[in-house]
Design a protein around this nucleic acid. Structure first.
Ligand SMILES: [Zn+2]
Ligand SMILES: [Zn+2]
Ligand SMILES: [Zn+2]
Ligand SMILES: [Zn+2]
Lengths: 126, 126
DNA sequence: AAGCTTTCTGTTATAACATCACGTTAATGG
DNA sequence: CCATTAACGTGATGTTATAACAGAAAGCTT
């Protein structure tokens, strides 16, 4: 089941909600229900194969699925494209700022909204 | 309505879901329905009086409600306390990293999980 | 005042996202 | 073979959020 969910997420470039994935897989397996999908997504996110976009309630396949890492996501407001940025330095800086008030960071949720390079080019042309 | 919602959020130190707020206010106004709360929360977040915690589907009153600002939230896994960090430098750094791939940032969602100073102190003592 | 527009609120219903609880199946290993 | 465990199926439910339309209040316009 995890493999099938991962395949669906990889076919799609952008983010998908759990119910989007469910809809896709129901074309083959008719009696698929939400818990099955959520279980698979949970395992995949734990294994780092899939990342959850917290501010969209959606999921994307990892773009660097051969190693585990912390991530920063950029999300285009125009086309919805998601890009994964790996920057340990920035995460350290963030942990540093939090630690000024004695906070010990363990997990970062960072999602940046704006406009991707492609959409900026299109808009500049117009 | 906005004032009443804001009061409820201020009384509580931690984050509240929209339905938490609804429950509180229903003690007085019995036929309060979700849309009323969501409308008030929407205006309050637009005005910067309340911030939404995207990864918790919850809301907190702004800790610096006299001026508008971008924010970073730290959220304690142990006690749920939320603290608001204002750091334009860090947001600039983040925009900078995103711009390396041509991305133009307009809005940042940054939520850091870990352990607050108070909970660390308790744990150290134990 | 009468009529209008705008804004906010009330109400019902429903959509969208996520989990619980329990039962069944299937593989693993003694 | 049987106990254990992990995965999945199934139905219901819980939680978060919005659509769609109706009504009331407040402020202008004439
Ligand atoms: Zn990744
Ligand atoms: Zn784009
Ligand atoms: Zn604030
Ligand atoms: Zn704490």
């Amino acid at each position: 089941m995890q493999d099938e969910v991962l395949d669906v997420l990889r076919e799609r470039s952008g983010p998908m909600s759990a119910y989007d994935v469910l809809g896709q897989l129901r074309q083959d397996k008719l009696n698929l229900a939400p818990p099955t999908i959520y279980r698979a997504l949970s395992s995949l996110t734990n294994r780092g194969k899939v990342h959850r976009l917290e501010s969209l309630n959606a999921f994307v396949a990892c773009q660097y699925d051969d190693h585990e890492h912390a991530w920063i996501m950029s999300i285009c407001d125009s086309c919805g494209a998601v890009n994964e940025i790996v920057s340990p330095e920035l995460l350290n800086a963030l942990s540093g700022v939090a630690s000024e008030s004695g906070f010990l960071s363990t997990r970062h949720v960072i999602e940046i909204y704006g406009q991707c390079a492609a959409c900026r080019a299109i808009e500049a042309k117009a």
